[in-house]
Simulated assay, not measured.
Amino acid sequence: MPRLDLDPATFDACSAAAGDAAATLHGTGVLGVPASAAGDPVLASALADLERAWARDVALLEQQLGQLVSALGEAGRIFADAEDGAAAVLAAALGRSPR
Rank of each mutant, 00 (worst) to 15 (best):
Q63S: 11
L4M: 13
D20E: 15
D81T: 12
L31E: 02
T24I: 04
R3S: 12
D5L: 12
G19P: 05
E74G: 00
R52D: 09
L60F: 06
L47S: 02
G39C: 07
L31G: 00
T24L: 14
R96D: 09
Q63H: 13
D7L: 07
D7C: 03
V58N: 02
A38D: 02
A92E: 13
L4Y: 13
D81K: 01
G29P: 05
A75S: 14
E83L: 14
P41I: 08
S15T: 04
L50Q: 12
A35G: 03
A9Y: 01
E62Y: 02
G66A: 08
L25E: 02
R52E: 12
L60V: 11
D84N: 11
L61S: 10
T10A: 13
D57C: 03
A18T: 00
R52I: 09
L65V: 05
D84R: 15
A86C: 07
R52G: 01
W54Y: 13
Q64P: 00
T28D: 10
G19D: 07
L25D: 01
A80V: 02
A91Y: 06
T24V: 10
E74R: 11
A46M: 10
L4S: 11
V30S: 00
P98H: 06
G85T: 05
P2Q: 09
Q63N: 09
A16H: 12
L4V: 15
A75Y: 07
L72Q: 05
M1P: 04
E62G: 07
E51D: 15
P98Q: 08
A48D: 12
T28Y: 04
S15A: 15
A22Q: 07
A87R: 14
S15V: 06
G32M: 06
A23D: 14
G73P: 04
W54R: 13
L90V: 12
A46N: 04
A93D: 11
A93M: 12
A75Q: 11
A80F: 02
E74F: 07
L25R: 00
A23T: 08
G73N: 02
D12H: 03
D7G: 03
L94G: 01
G29C: 11
E74N: 09
A92W: 10
A92Y: 10
D5P: 01
V33L: 09
A53L: 10
E83T: 09
V58W: 00
R52A: 14
A13E: 14
A18C: 09
L50V: 10
D20W: 00
A82T: 12
A82E: 08
A92V: 02
P2D: 08
G76K: 01
A9G: 04
A53H: 10
A21H: 01
A82S: 13
A86E: 13
G32V: 08
D40Y: 06
R99W: 08
G73L: 06
G27K: 04
P8F: 07
F11M: 04
A44C: 05
L31Y: 02
V30Y: 03
A75N: 08
L72N: 03
P34R: 11
P34S: 11
S97M: 10
F79R: 01
R99I: 04
M1D: 06
A35L: 05
V30M: 01
D20H: 08
A75F: 05
A21F: 08
A35F: 03
L60D: 15
A35W: 01
T10F: 07
A13Y: 06
L50E: 11
R3L: 14
S45Y: 01
A88T: 15
L94K: 09
A82N: 12
V58C: 06
D40I: 09
